[in-house]
Simulated assay, not measured.
Amino acid sequence: MEWKPTYLQDKIGVRFKNSALLFESLIHPSYAQQVNRSENNNERLEYLGEKILEFIITNYLYQNCSYLAVSKLTTLRNKLEEKEKLTDLWFKLGLGESFPFLAVKDERHYLRIKRNNPFEKALKALVGAMHLDRGSSQTFNWVKKQLIAPLLARHLKNIKDRLDHEKQLEFLGEALFNAIVADYLYRLFPYVNTCFLSKITKKLVVKEQQNKYINQLTSEDWKIIDTENEKINRKSFTSLLAAIYIHFDQQNSKISFRETGSWWINKSIDEDEIWRELINLLIKDGVSQKWIIRQVMGYESKDYNEGRERFHELMKSSKIDNEIKIGDHY
Rank of each mutant, 00 (worst) to 15 (best):
H329P: 09
I180Y: 02
Y186F: 15
Y31R: 04
D133T: 03
N18R: 04
G298L: 08
I320N: 06
W264C: 02
K124L: 11
K144M: 08
F311W: 11
K83C: 04
L21R: 12
R294M: 15
K267A: 05
A153M: 11
A125I: 12
Q251N: 05
I200N: 03
R310G: 05
E107M: 11
R44L: 09
R258M: 10
L123R: 01
D328E: 13
Q33Y: 10
F257D: 05
N266A: 12
K254G: 05
M1C: 11
V206S: 08
R308M: 12
Q210G: 01
N18G: 04
L152Y: 01
G261T: 01
I56E: 04
P118Q: 00
F55T: 06
K72L: 12
S136N: 12
E120C: 09
D164K: 04
K325G: 06
V35M: 06
P118Y: 05
N117Y: 10
T238C: 13
E170Q: 13
D164W: 07
A32L: 07
V14M: 14
K254L: 11
I232K: 00
R77T: 05
I180S: 06
I180E: 01
L132R: 02
Q210S: 02
L21P: 06
S66I: 09
A243T: 09
E46N: 03
S239G: 13
R234I: 06
S25T: 02
D106Y: 06
I159Q: 10
F119S: 02
L111I: 08
I159P: 07
K290W: 07
P150Q: 03
N78T: 12
A69V: 08
L314N: 00
Y186N: 12
I113N: 13
L169G: 07
L188V: 04
D164S: 03
F23G: 03
N178W: 09
S253E: 15
S66F: 03
A182G: 08
Q209V: 13
